[in-house]
């Protein structure tokens, strides 16, 4: 089977999420990549080094600069005339583009796969990860998104794929990019952080969140996450949200502070290797999944912990 993997990037560097998708695609067969962007040859050169990649298709056009689905999907559909499967990471861009490709190919997409069980058989989470379905596609081609935490990352060196320029139709004339407010975050990115310190509604406000959570995260070199309640209340921006409808994370250590453990939150972090919970309510559901729990007032515990580490 020949697979085409969509490479997530910012026109200068490849995003890590791509590497898990490459691993998943490798389980299906030959791996080709698509780098679509503007002034992004450096990304293609980087992608060509990934171990196990046969070919990199490079589509360099201003219309692809911001991964607008209206423009990228037709390009992918063209390339799919000589590929059997389209694979993308289940990132916000991947989730935006992939169903558009699937519908144009008249294929039912398989979302967020956790494993490859056979040529056309996969497992995927449903009901916020409370039910794992094993599903088989009956379509002629496959269209898949890949959950980043479920697959190892492909090696970024060792490959020597050829780079082939491709041209697509470019601007579909339906949409335009206005701008972005991408938070500049010095901290490790949530989906690849080894340690995550996450705060919930109990943190009261943005200032308190900063004062209590950040010093601990700094000490541990950790990424910072939050519950939906904390994001909705404006303590931190939306890209901090962990959960069914936020980011899916699986760090070595996840420290949940003042988070009750609603199923929607658990859906995003329960595959973490070690879960540590700090909560004043000893019956909080978070303790049902925590490896280590500490019952008490976070405003006393967290500063003390930060100091003693």
């Amino acid at each position: 089977m020949k697979t085409l993997v969509w490479v997530e990037h910012d026109n200068s560097a490849m995003a890590d999420a791509t590497l898990a998708a490459v691993t998943a695609a490798g389980k299906l067969g030959e791996v080709h990549l698509l780098v679509a962007g503007s002034g992004c040859r450096a990304v293609a050169e980087q992608a060509a080094q990934i171990a196990g990649v046969g070919k990199v298709h490079l589509a360099d056009n201003a219309a692809y600069a911001n991964a607008l689905a209206e423009n990228v999907a037709p390009l992918v559909v063209d390339l799919m005339s000589h590929h059997d499967a389209f694979v993308a990471p289940a990132t916000s861009h991947g989730k935006n583009i992939t169903p558009r490709v699937a519908a144009l190919l008249d294929v039912m997409q398989i979302s967020d796969i956790l494993s490859v069980e056979g040529e056309k058989t996969f497992t995927r989470p449903t009901y916020a990860g409370n039910a794992i379905a094993t599903v088989e596609s009956t379509d002629a081609k496959l269209v898949i998104t890949v959950r980043g935490t479920a697959f190892d990352k492909a090696e970024t060196t060792g490959g020597s794929a050829t780079i082939e320029d491709v041209s697509g139709a470019g601007d579909a004339g339906l949409s335009s990019f206005v701008g972005a407010e991408i938070a500049k975050n010095e901290r490790p990115e949530l989906t690849s952080a080894k340690i995550i310190v996450s705060g919930g509604r109990a943190l009261k406000d943005s200032e308190t969140f900063q004062q209590v959570i950040m010093p601990l995260a700094d000490k541990l070199g950790a990424g910072v996450g939050a519950s939906r309640a904390a994001v909705d209340a404006g303590y931190v921006p939306n890209d901090y949200q962990v959960g069914q409808t936020g980011k899916i994370v699986a760090p070595e250590v996840y420290i949940a502070i003042g988070i009750s453990g609603a199923i929607q939150h658990l859906a995003g972090m329960k595959d973490s290797k070690t879960i540590i919970a700090i909560n004043k309510d000893e019956d909080a559901p978070i303790f049902q999944v925590a490896d280590i729990g500490l019952v008490g007032d976070l405003f006393k515990i967290v500063p003390e912990l930060t100091e003693k580490l």
Partner: peptide, 27 residues
């Protein structure tokens, strides 16, 4: 349907771990 559901299973359950008494023990 284009997709056949072969099986639906519970995810592996996480066992609750231990509780520590204080910050020193957690450290």
């Amino acid at each position: 349907p284009r997709i056949k559901t072969l099986k639906v299973a519970e995810p592996p359950v996480r066992q609750a771990g231990i509780k520590v008494a204080d910050v020193d023990e957690l450290v």
